[in-house]
């Protein structure tokens, strides 16, 4: 596990970091790889899997959505059968959404199409 995504946390220093209710409200997931982190975390560090897909001009708000369902924490993507089944095996450890309920926004869709990436939604 040389690389892994942050544990979702709301990253608001003035709040109890273990306040999950607050965290939960701020959780968003990446359209492309379904990584789940808080908005702050995405803002600060981008998506651990896809950040190089998105240049600096694309804000994290553009490729994340709060509209996802289910969550899977992946500790060992390579050994896990669930990851294999969900096609998450090649991503870094972290929290992922089981399914994304939103349609990919047009802008993002264009970018992804340019790169020949199809997004699957769980």
């Amino acid at each position: 596990m040389e690389q892994f995504a942050d544990v979702p946390a709301h990253n608001e220093s003035n709040r109890d970091p273990s306040d999950f209710a607050l965290t939960n409200k701020n959780l968003v997931c990446c359209y492309v790889c379904r990584l789940v982190k808080s908005r702050n975390q995405f803002r600060e560090s981008g998506c651990d899997n896809c950040k190089n897909l998105f240049g600096p001009s694309i804000s994290s708000e553009d490729y994340t959505t709060p509209n996802f369902s289910g969550m899977i924490s992946i500790m060992d993507p390579k050994a896990s059968w669930a990851c294999k089944w969900l096609h998450l095996g090649r991503y870094v450890p972290g929290c992922y959404a089981m399914a994304v309920n939103d349609e990919v926004p047009d802008d993002l869709q264009d970018i992804l199409e340019n790169k020949g990436i199809k997004v699957r939604h769980g």
């Binding site: 096609h87 790169k115 199809k118």
Partner: peptide, 18 residues
């Protein structure tokens, strides 16, 4: 960036293909 990725679009993209 875009140039770069255009070149090898479709190759070894995230495991999102059907």
């Amino acid at each position: 960036i875009e140039e770069r990725y255009r070149d090898y679009a479709g190759e070894d993209i995230p495991d999102t293909a059907d």
